[in-house]
């Protein structure tokens, strides 16, 4: 509660300071939109040629791409620039100020900024989600809507955990930004196509080690009701929320371990 109240105080101030930058602020919303348009176009071009990839048709693949984008977008609003700010702070030694305030530094880190940049992504993703649902003839009743939201939140938590963990690397490594980018953008790109197209090793890695498959592959299986290409165990899609919670808890532990390693800079 206290957290939400503080959040409500911080956000208007954040936006006021950002809108002062004028045009650039509004351009931010366009953000990666162009990027995504290109990606959808590539999927369209590819799928028009091959019809299906491993049994997944064009709209199913687009749905997967969309889920990845949506869960990342939502997580990024609260964590992405917040964590890059942390990296900057740790590098400059200004992270000190988060450790002398009567509020959990993790919460403080989240509320002092806002990733409006990613709102554009979320809008596009929601639009494409509706479009894919329509094309695939999917509709949600009450129960499946709840299940859908639950797996979506699980996916968001997985994405958030990866942002937090890779971002926290700054407490151990001097130049951690490149690691963060590699994890967040490199590995994430693997997820634009069904995990079932990869070999067993990669499937295992993406399910059990860096479980990115839970941001879109398993949720998509659930939404599309696909039991034919179940990997490892048929109940895995249902584990998405739990995987999200677990991974996020690990992310928080890593962050806390980082705090206690923080050395600051001289002066």
């Amino acid at each position: 509660m206290r957290f939400l109240k503080l959040y409500a105080r911080f956000i208007p101030i954040y936006f006021k300071s950002k809108t002062e930058h004028g045009f650039g602020f509004y351009m931010d919303f366009v953000g990666f939109a162009l990027n995504h348009v290109v990606s959808y176009f590539v999927i369209w071009a590819l799928m028009s040629r091959f019809q299906t990839i491993n049994g997944w048709n064009m709209y199913e693949v687009m749905l997967m791409y969309t889920l990845n984008m949506l869960t990342f977008g939502i997580a990024a609003v609260f964590f992405f620039f917040q964590m890059t700010d942390v990296e900057e702070d740790v590098h400059m030694g200004t992270f000190d100020s988060l450790l002398v305030k009567p509020i959990n530094p993790f919460v403080h880190m989240i509320i002092r900024a806002f990733g409006h940049f990613f709102l554009g992504d979320i809008v596009i993703a929601v639009g494409m989600l509706v479009f894919c649902f329509h094309k695939l003839g999917l509709s949600l009743d009450f129960g499946s809507a709840i299940a859908f939201i639950a797996v979506l939140l699980g996916g968001v938590l997985v994405q958030a955990a990866f942002i937090v963990i890779s971002g926290s690397a700054c407490f151990w490594l001097v130049r951690s930004r490149s690691l963060m980018n590699m994890v967040l953008f490199g590995i994430r790109d693997l997820m634009d196509y069904p995990v079932s197209i990869y070999g067993t090793v990669l499937r295992g890695v993406l399910t059990f080690v860096i479980p990115y498959a839970f941001v879109n592959f398993y949720p998509a299986q659930l939404i599309l009701n696909r039991n034919d290409d179940a990997l490892f165990a048929s109940w895995l899609p249902y584990a998405t929320p739990a995987v999200g919670l677990l991974l996020f808890a690990i992310g928080y532990r890593v962050w806390n371990a980082g705090l206690n390693r923080y050395q600051g800079t001289g002066s």
Partner: peptide, 10 residues
């Protein structure tokens, strides 16, 4: 003295 504890852009 060397660093502010306040919010930089605010």
């Amino acid at each position: 003295g060397q660093k502010s504890q306040l919010w930089w852009d605010t």
